[in-house]
Structures are given as C-alpha cells and as structure tokens.
C-alpha cells in the first residue's frame, strides 16, 4: 500500500468516526425531541405531578427545582473543597510526597462508581449524621462525585498562570495571599467558573448518587435543606421503570437534556469571552 492510499484511508476513517458519533448524538437528541415535544406545555413545566399512579398526569416542576437545587448545593460544596485543595497543592504544599498522596486520593475518588458514592452518602450522611433523605444529603453526595472533576481542572488552570507574572507580584513585596486573591484567582476566574458549570451539569444528570440520599417519587418543592426532593433523572427512572407514563418520561428527558445543553452553552460562552480578553 503506498503512502497516498494510506493517508486517504486514514482520512476516510477519521471522517467516518466523526460522522458516526455526530449521527448518534443527533439521533438521540432528535428521537427524544420528537417523542418528548408533545408532552411539553406550560402545565408540564409549571405543575407538580398528579394522577394515579403519581406522575401519569400533571408536570415536573418540583423535579426541575429539585435538580437545580441539588446542582447548586453540590457545586458550592465541591468547588469550595476543590479550589482550596488546588490552591494548597500549587502554592503552599512543598512536599512532593503529600502532593502525590493527594493526587492519588483524588484519582481514586474519581474512579469510585457513583452508586457506591450513593451508598456511602446513605450510610454516612443519611443515617450516621442523621441528615435523613434530604436535598442536603443528596447535594453533598453529588459534591463528592464532582469534586475530583473540578479539582483536576482548577489545579491545571492555576499551574498555567505564567510564573513570571506571579514573581513580579512577589517582587513588589506583596504577600502570597494578596497575590493569590487579587492576581491569580482573577486571572483564573473564568476557567474556574467554566469548570464548575460543567461539573454542575454532570451532577444534575446523575441519578445513582441521589436514589438513596435525596430523591423521592413525589414531593413538593423542598421547604428546607432537610426535605426530600424530586429530581429529573430519578423521576425519569421511576416513570419508565415502573411503567407509569412513557410519554411523560420522554418529556422529562427532553427537559433534562435542554437544561444540560443550556449549562454547557453557558460554560462555552464563558470560555470564549475569556479567550477574547487575552
């Protein structure tokens, strides 16, 4: 086989792979759109579920709110931990051994299956800490899940800041802490926000960590952090798993996908505006 045919075949192969993936993505989205669009109306978006069994009628408003709340709690919890860890690793930790250990732990955490995290959340948060099946317990469990995701990205962003820029701040006699808050974090701000948003989308779509810790078949909008909630992925699972209403399930799936799409678009926009600034 000569070089020309090889390169032709290679190009054909990568083009084909791209097309197959794109086709699958569009097919999934198109399929859900065509099946789900009919159930989407104001009542579906703004009412609670009703009918017997619950969910066969009515809407998914509490689940939308529940999912957004879970995302918010998990993002706040995970990003505080992840940003602090990354700052420690990049600017304060001097022992290579501790750095290696923390990286190892983070990697292990990202490898834990999410249903196991759910089980951990159930035994530790729900039972041991007595938080009960609640939006707080679910949010924290999701936080454990997305923590490695955020930590790795934030650390990478911090490491990318030009060392000579940091040194010129130190050369002005300025403290490490001031440099961190007034120079380094502002430089990394949009990258960090974009990592958190992406992680939020990841948390919102996950069902297994919340099955045991937060989600219930029916609940009103939570009145406090200790109330159980409805969540879109869990609602979807119940609607199909129990054969309640396939039509509503497609509607729910469409809403979930649209929300995730919006989150991803926001994250992309943040990234683009950052690039333009540079």
């Amino acid at each position: 086989m000569n070089e020309k045919t090889k390169s032709f075949l290679f190009k054909g192969w990568i083009l084909l792979s791209t097309l197959i993936v794109l086709a699958i993505v569009f097919y999934i989205f198109g399929y859900i759109l065509s099946n789900g669009i009919e159930s989407i109306n104001m009542e579906f978006l703004l009412d609670g579920p009703s009918g017997i069994p619950v969910g066969s009628q009515g809407g998914i408003f509490p689940a939308i709110v529940g999912s957004l709340l879970l995302m918010l709690i998990s993002c706040v919890f995970a990003s505080i931990l992840a940003i602090s860890t990354s700052i420690y690793l990049v600017f304060y930790c001097e022992s290579e051994r501790i750095k290696g250990l923390i990286h190892l732990i983070t990697q292990c955490m990202s490898g834990v299956p999410s249903i196991i995290l759910g089980l951990f959340g159930y035994t530790f948060l729900v039972l041991y800490l007595n938080l009960g099946r609640s939006v707080l317990a679910g949010g924290l469990t999701l936080g454990f899940m997305i923590y490695p995701f955020i930590q790795v990205r934030v650390e990478k962003t911090l490491l990318e800041v030009d060392k000579s820029i940091i040194n010129s701040s130190y050369a002005l006699g300025i403290s490490r802490t001031y440099t961190l808050f007034k120079l380094i974090l502002p430089i990394c701000k949009s990258d960090i926000v974009s990592a958190i948003t992406l992680a939020g989308g990841f948390a919102m779509g996950a069902a297994s960590p919340i099955i045991l810790t937060a989600a219930v078949t029916f609940a009103p909008i939570p009145s406090s952090l200790s109330s159980p909630v409805m969540a879109l992925p869990f609602h979807l699972y119940i609607l199909t798993g129990e054969g309640i209403s396939l039509e509503k399930a497609y509607g729910t799936a469409l809403v979930l996908i649209l929300l995730l799409l919006i989150i991803n678009i926001i994250s992309t926009i943040i990234n683009i505006t950052r690039k333009e600034h540079k």
């Binding site: 000579s164 820029i165 040194n167 701040s169 050369a171 002005l172 006699g173 007034k182 120079l183 600034h277």
Partner: peptide
Amino acid sequence: RRMIGMVFQTPTPFPFSIYKNLTYA
C-alpha cells in the same frame, strides 16, 4: 522587595487594565 524593585526580562504586565496594573501594589 518594596525598597528594591525589579523588572524582568520579558514584560510581565498583569492581564488587567493599565489602571489596575498601576494601582495593584
């Protein structure tokens, strides 16, 4: 370091406005 200032080989402006660069310290 405040009394003995330093300028580096390649320019190292902070990626902020000119005003913020000069009011930073």
